[in-house]
Design a protein around this nucleic acid. Structure first.
Lengths: 254, 254
DNA sequence: GAGCCTTAATGAGGATAACTCATCAGCGAT
DNA sequence: ATCGCTGATGAGTTATCCTCATTAAGGCTC
């Protein structure tokens, strides 16, 4: 609302701090990119929406593509915000794996245009590797790796688990499964998909193909693990409510 | 050699049959696309290599993109030529699965530029579905489906096999695993990769491994599901309180 | 508070590339 | 030899990214 400096006669040369301008431009760019896609998004329109002239954009972003990357980096970062925090509250290989899958599926479902831009113009270009998005995906895969490694150490997963392969197949599978939704045709159910995928993956990973200790033993192990999970969840709930209390107190003093 | 009608002074108006011209154009286009990529490939250069003038291309292909699609359709068809024939000579769920995976990996390894174009400009665009390439991929997935169904019928695979999921994860995994090679950085070994992937997938599919399907198992399943639900609820709670934090902060900054 | 100076902002214009269209002429049929 | 169909032309249009010389806003010094 109060964006235009002087509401009459259209202010000619509002001089704003650099960071503020950058953010304005990125906000405008995000809107146009989402609305029209990359190629169809004209720099002139982005400039217009950011209350700027086309040439000025290039003082903030060297190229149209740089602008896209900047926009998607912050968007993707928000998209995956603190999933690792939430992951910390979940225990057990299987549950943790499922959470990772489910979280990404939900993120994809809630942001189809964003993920479309991501796949079309970032992940399939060679400079993807020098992108913050790549870093985030690496971190994500790293978490999966940690989960698997942990599972192997505890003996729950077989020692020959292909550590590199599994995250790749999960990420690739998610890509494939969400393609239609991303393109605006079709839907998917994150919870059900996550269940199916987790089940399938877990079966491929779990140790003891030929009943090492009998099925009952296995069930007992899983029950114990689940019990630990529940305890962890309870603990997390408790600490959460404490945090909220503290929050309320500190906020009210502001 | 005999392409140019009069070998002196560059024949001005060689009049060739329509199909012949189409093929010439597609051959030239393929070369330029592979060499430079889609955006960097200029219609003028394609025309020059096909011994034509730029404007003439548009009498054969309505748009640059149409030309690309036509080129990739025949290339992809060749790429997967008679894998189904070879498949017929292989028996056993596991062997057949492995062959499917291995075959695609080899094709991808041998044609990095082609697959790069495919992923960058066909598979990530909405009109992919109306493409012959889509049909070919469907056929490929259909073969996998048949293999799995057959395995279920014989009792080798468990009956609850997620038929839709598995081919998607395999194709997606192959996509991911070959990304670096496609982009010109890194390598992969089709045989070893196929082995690993087949082993992992097969373990996830085969009947009668860890969950024997007994009543105890059912109890464990239900308990685990409950635990997951609780964890998810906690996670939601957590993100909720965090969101409130952010809200408060952003509001105070106004 | 006047003048200076850094630099944000401008806007006209260059460069390139996809695509169009009125016109021309090669080639088979008469 | 002539005619007409249509393949082929190439000049031109349009759209868009990006550059650059110029202008003046606003903080800083005295």
């Amino acid at each position: 609302m109060a964006t235009s400096a002087q509401n009459s006669t259209k202010a000619k040369r509002a001089r704003l701090p650099r960071e503020r301008r950058r953010m304005d431009i990125m906000a405008a760019a995000r809107a146009v990119f989402v609305e029209k896609g990359y190629e169809e998004a004209a720099m002139s329109e982005i400039a217009a929406r950011a209350d700027l002239v086309e040439g000025s954009l290039y003082r903030f972003f060297k190229t149209k593509r740089d602008l896209l990357i900047a926009v998607l980096e912050v968007s993707y970062e928000k998209l995956l915000a603190d999933y690792d925090l939430q992951l910390a509250g979940i225990s057990g290989v299987r549950n943790r794996l499922r959470f990772m899958i489910w979280r990404l599926l939900v993120a994809f479902q809630e942001n189809p245009d964003l993920t479309r831009l991501l796949y079309r113009h970032i992940r399939s270009e060679a400079d993807y590797l020098s992108t913050r998005i790549y870093e985030l995906n690496r971190k994500y895969a790293g978490h999966m790796d940690a989960i698997l490694t942990e599972g192997i150490a505890s003996g729950e997963l077989r020692a020959e688990t292909p550590l590199r392969l599994v995250p790749q197949m999960i990420l690739g599978g998610i890509d494939q499964l969400t393609w239609r939704h991303r393109m605006g045709v079709g839907q998917f159910d994150p919870a059900r998909t996550a269940d199916e995928m987790t089940e399938f993956v877990y079966r491929g990973l779990v140790a003891g193909n030929h009943s090492a200790g009998g099925p009952q033993d296995d069930v007992a192990n899983r029950l114990e693990a689940t019990s630990r999970d529940l305890a962890a969840t309870t603990a997390r709930l408790a600490s959460l409510s404490e945090l909220q209390d503290i929050d309320k107190k500190t906020n009210s003093s502001d």
